[in-house]
Design a protein around this nucleic acid. Structure first.
Lengths: 338, 338
DNA sequence: ATGAAAGCGCTAACAC
DNA sequence: GTGTTAGCGCTTTCAT
């Protein structure tokens, strides 16, 4: 297990110079630097992160906390964060809360407090005051993805605007009877995404002078099965059949798509469908959707933290960053029949 | 930032005793233990992982290397590993190689060598001799998931048997013209899963005395779109239309299902379909499949490593562990029409 | 059962 | 620009 002293000996310099040469902190002559680098290379020396962390107070490791891992959105955010971190020499330590129980408590009270990470990215998690202040007290920068965290830099998407945009697309095409399949209010813990999108839908409808009866907004659970069940229910009803469905996620939109087919309806001739996400399956189903870019969100979160952590940068991050979204028109939407 | 000395002072003992009481290593009187515990609790003291790692040589952190993250199989393995690790007080540091380029090299030569992890789980990665020996030289236990790694404990599934089982299910129902949509040989880097499954298919057919013409085995890419395209191609051909399709993954099976529908064929009346995985969407599509249990695979891998790392256990792991799989019969398979 | 003391492998003043 | 020195916060002998 080759250490810094062996490198120093081989390069004919002191350990301090090796440290300076390899870390880039402090001035080193070109000659010394070259000798250190080749010595380190020969010996396949890699700095011990523990020793370095202990001495410097920096771990070069970022904790990422997610509520789920095997959902497209979350794994994409993690993937983006991982890419950006790796590129900058940082490790990513993952905390997945999907197990429930006191996992969450132990993560925030134990795991994140043992100084293994320099900073924390919280994805779609509404942190409590205690959780936030606990982290900040340890001097750990924190950034939230997917909603505002009190007093913490957060990447947010304008959920209301996203839903308005989707709805306006349908209205522009001429639809007047539109069904919104959204998230449930019970599951609405995480930043009220469900209700925000419902609000956006209602806003767009009202602005266009269209009625928004209660039956035009139903609650589901963001899954294909949920979208299928609710769409079938609504499309099978003998009255008020919608000519378009706006689902709050692509997975629900796909479910609705399948339900329509099973009823013998053709998309988009008999029914237009729009979703949100630009899920990996959206293209296959030729789904019109409003893309959000989770991989980019993860990357951005990581970069904001890195900018804060690097001594050369030390940038104070903006408290709210607004994330981009974009309407992607494919073949699941069209003018209504008549 | 409360340290061990403050806890020691408050409990009226030495730092050494605090360390012993909290770690469980070494004898401590019941009284001292109680006082230490309450002091630590009051002060919300959590051991600094870096200092502890540096002094003890153990990090309580495991590296997990995956080739992708946003695919159902891999995120499930990671989720399982994470759960088992967290439960045992370990952190999980994630390395996702999906970026390509020299990511892989830097992970193996730099990131995994900086003593941040005690052990490594490699998921569906065929490691090179150099990568393996590099890790083992650092005294880092290694376990492979998803295929054999030379000289390393590995969790393997009998891919040939899995494919045979799926095929036999179709044969048992009376199918004789079966199409196998498998993985491509080009993408076959990772343990030849594609070819193993093709072999199992051919074995079962031959054993049953059925012909295996070249056209009955086609190569795709494990995606819904791939399954759709190939199934449509085969089902649309005027001759040799299969009465059943065995897809090497549920995602391809779902693609095949959609292709059949689009052609006006009814599943399972006109076409039986079986997949492999028990993907989260399998139930929705009522897909008959052979389940493998990726979450369990991740948990098992983590537990094998932990058994090796805990000084109280120090178990020498078996070199090959065979993973379970199970036929799950739903409604996408039935006897052929006549 | 407990404390004192010596490191673990590095970094960061501080001197020169 | 470089070396010397003093820690970083723990764990682990070694005494007692």
């Amino acid at each position: 297990m080759v250490g810094i002293n062996e490198v120093a000996r081989r390069a004919g310099v002191s350990a301090a110079t090796v440290s300076r040469a390899l870390s880039g902190n402090g001035a080193v002559s070109a000659g010394a630097r070259a000798r250190v680098e080749s010595a380190a290379n020969d010996l396949r020396y890699v700095v011990s992160s523990n020793a370095s962390s202990l001495a410097s107070g920096r771990t070069r490791n970022v904790g990422v906390v997610v509520p789920h891992l095997n959902r497209w959105f979350f794994s994409s955010v993690v993937e983006g964060a991982e890419r950006a971190l790796l590129r900058n020499g940082y490790d990513l330590t993952l905390y997945n809360l999907s197990g429930g129980g006191d996992e969450r408590r132990s993560v925030f009270e134990h795991f994140l407090r043992r100084r293994r990470v320099d900073a924390v990215i919280a994805v779609a998690l509404e942190l409590t005051e205690v959780e936030i202040s606990g982290l900040l007290a340890l001097n750990k920068p924190l950034v939230g993805v997917g909603g505002p965290l009190a007093g913490v830099p957060s990447l947010e998407i304008d959920e209301v605007a996203i839903a308005r945009l989707a709805t306006e697309h349908l209205i522009m095409l001429g639809h007047t009877t539109i069904l919104h399949i959204g998230g449930s209010s019970q599951e609405d813990t995480n930043f009220h995404i469900g209700s925000h999108r419902r609000t956006g839908f209602a806003q767009a409808m009202t602005t266009a002078g269209l009625p928004v009866p209660a039956r035009s907004m139903i609650s589901s659970n963001f899954t294909v099965a949920g979208g299928y069940a609710h769409a079938k229910q609504a499309l099978g009803h003998p009255h008020h059949r919608p000519t378009a469905i706006f689902a709050a996620s692509d997975e629900m939109a796909i479910g609705a798509h399948l339900a329509a087919r099973d009823l013998g309806l053709t998309v988009p001739q008999d029914l237009s469908i729009i979703g949100i996400d630009d899920h990996e399956l959206a293209e296959f189903f030729q789904l019109t959707t409003v893309a959000q870019f989770p991989k980019g969100q993860g990357e951005l979160a990581a970069e904001i933290l890195i900018a804060q952590l690097e001594p050369s940068r030390r940038e104070e991050p903006a408290l709210r960053v607004t994330l981009p979204f974009e309407l992607i028109v494919r073949s699941s939407t069209a003018r209504p029949r008549d």
